[in-house]
Each structure stands twice: as structure tokens, then as C-alpha cells.
């Protein structure tokens, strides 16, 4: 068991991460503008027949005034284009990432497990074809150590802010993971 001076030093390390960018620190710009072919692909995959996503004539009669992107596609537009070769070797990461993750502090302290716990979206406006979206992600909070059913760990929340070409916020996502020390089986 660490003594309290060690605990304080570790908490200070965690506090230093609050506000730190996740990823490169530069905005992730969508490789393509919001577009109907990708919307149609999404709507087909989820069998979502909402006509405001794919029916131009119908969408024009609604309060949206035209085709809009499904609101939960927000997260997909700015994701990096996958590099298939090497994806296994990268542990499933879709692209090679440069530098170390800010969360390596937790890995180094034995909290090597990762479990997604919550995903929350605030939608300011629905996106339209042609919108070019970019996003930035920062760590919003890191909890004190908690005992959970899968082991001791810290809940880490990051917030991604999505903006349009004019810089107006179109939505936010909060994503919470548990970084945990896998319980020892003895």
C-alpha cells in the first residue's frame, strides 16, 4: 500500500492531465465533408428509414429544410481514415499514433485495463451535406481511485468538441472509461 505522500504525488500527476489534449493536440479535421453517400451507408447499416437522412424531397418539407446527417454520426465524421495494413500489430488502433498517451501515467501505475463506461452527446445543430467538421478532445476529469466489480481503478472523462468551418460548436461528446488494475486471480 502506498503511503499518503505517494498518494498525493500521484493525485498531482493526475491533476496535471486535466485539460490535456488527447491525440496530437491539433484539431482532427474530417477527411470528407458531411455527404449523402456515407449517410446512406449508415442508414442502411442500422436500417434507419428516417427520411430526413436520405430522401431529398421529403427532407425539404421538414423543419430541417433538407437532408441532415443522423445526429449520432457526429463522432464518425472526424475519425481518421483507417490504415488496414498493420492494424493487428498496432493493437487494433486504426492509425499509427505518435508520442505517448497522456493516460500512460495510469498504465504505469498498474491500471492497464480499459473499459468504456459512458457516452454522452449534446447536439447543438444537425449537420448538412457540405459541412466540414473538426474536433478537439481534452481530458475533463479523472476520479479518485474507486473499487469496482472488476478491480480498483480511476474513471477518466474526456470531452470532444465538434465545430463547423465557421468555428461554431455543433456538438460535444463526453466519453468515460475506467482504467483499472485487473483483479488478481489466486
Amino acid at each position: 500500500m502506498a503511503d499518503s505522500a505517494d498518494d498525493d504525488a500521484f493525485r498531482a500527476q493526475l491533476d496535471a492531465l486535466i485539460g490535456a489534449p488527447v491525440g496530437t493536440g491539433r484539431p482532427s479535421v474530417a477527411p470528407d465533408p458531411v455527404n449523402l453517400p456515407m449517410i446512406r451507408h449508415w442508414a442502411a447499416a442500422f436500417e434507419d428509414r428516417n427520411p430526413v437522412y436520405t430522401d431529398t424531397e421529403y427532407a425539404a418539407t421538414t423543419r430541417f429544410g433538407g437532408i441532415v446527417s443522423p445526429p449520432l454520426m457526429l463522432q464518425s465524421w472526424t475519425m481518421a481514415t483507417v490504415e488496414i495494413t498493420g492494424i493487428r500489430e498496432r493493437g487494433g488502433s486504426p492509425v499509427a499514433t505518435a508520442g505517448t498517451s497522456p493516460l500512460s501515467v495510469l498504465d504505469d501505475a498498474g491500471f492497464v485495463g480499459t473499459l468504456a463506461s459512458n457516452s454522452e452527446f449534446e447536439i447543438e445543430r444537425y449537420l448538412r451535406p457540405g459541412d466540414v467538421i473538426s474536433s478537439t478532445t481534452v481530458i475533463e476529469s479523472i476520479s479518485d481511485e474507486k473499487q469496482t466489480r472488476i478491480g480498483r481503478g480511476h474513471f477518466v472523462t474526456w470531452v470532444t468538441t465538434y465545430v463547423d468551418a465557421a468555428g461554431a460548436v455543433v456538438g460535444r461528446q463526453r466519453f468515460r472509461i475506467l482504467k483499472f488494475a485487473p483483479a488478481k486471480t489466486s
Binding site: N50, T62, N118, E120, I123
Partner: peptide, 13 residues
């Protein structure tokens, strides 16, 4: 329906 707008959604996994 199609005129509905989702402004917030939060899920626990």
C-alpha cells in the same frame, strides 16, 4: 418521427 430533433443522449454501457 422525422421532425424530431435529438438534442442530448447519454448512455451507460
Amino acid at each position: 418521427g422525422p421532425e424530431a430533433m435529438i438534442t442530448r443522449i447519454a448512455v451507460r454501457l
